[in-house]
């Protein structure tokens, strides 16, 4: 894929994302969204007795369940076909998916040597508006871990088996919020079992 065709494609995706966000998406108050997510995390902290590893897992599971469903909604809105390579996948996630659902465009960075892993850097995460982590949470809680689950679930439904995890988070005192997505393998489509 030549770079000018690549640039053109990125532009098209960007325009698509903005168009869908402006016209086809119902909007809600962002503070309501932020507070709802905040109470979920805070309640989990209470329920699991501040066992932050378990809470991270629970947020991941919740995200996974959201992801397997939200991908259908996403495809219905944008009518995009399956991506031909992982580069395109990264562009679609950043410029269309995040834009349509959260009005965010994270930047793509840190591509690995073999082009099978990249990072998303989220500049102002709406989930963590007004949040200050308590000191014991700062060492082990990934507040927005639900993103990891959503991406894993959604990508799995389009036959991409990926590992998604947080690398750094502003809430924890790091410089930026960074998410790492690594492609393990492309899952094969199922074929019908042959009966004798």
């Amino acid at each position: 894929m030549s770079s000018s065709a690549g640039q053109q494609q990125i532009k098209t995706l960007k325009v698509l994302g903005e168009d869908v966000w402006k016209n086809k998406v119902e909007k809600i108050n962002s503070e309501l969204f932020t507070l709802t997510y905040g109470t979920i995390v805070s309640q989990l902290c209470q329920d699991y007795d501040r066992d932050f590893e378990k809470i991270n897992d629970e947020l991941y599971k919740m995200g996974y369940n959201i992801g397997v469903r939200i991908i259908e909604d996403f495809l219905a809105r944008t009518a995009l076909p399956r991506c031909t390579d992982f580069n395109t996948t990264s562009e679609v996630i950043s410029k269309v998916a995040f834009k349509v659902f959260l009005n965010l465009t994270p930047t793509i960075a840190n591509w690995s040597q073999s082009n099978d892993a990249f990072s998303l850097i989220i500049s102002d995460n709406p989930l963590s508006d007004f949040v200050e982590l308590p000191i014991d949470a700062m060492k082990s809680l990934w507040y927005s871990n639900v993103y990891c689950g959503v991406l894993k679930g959604a990508l799995e439904m389009v036959q991409l088996d990926c590992d998604v995890s947080f690398v750094s988070d502003i809430l924890r005192g790091d410089n930026q919020t960074e998410l790492r997505i690594k492609l393990n393998k492309v899952l094969k489509d199922e074929i019908p079992v042959i009966e004798d």
Partner: peptide
């Protein structure tokens, strides 16, 4: 607005 702060708790945030 901080979800980890419950109303009427003492405010301990250094910020």
């Amino acid at each position: 607005m901080n979800p980890f702060y419950n109303a009427s708790e003492p405010i301990t945030s250094p910020i």
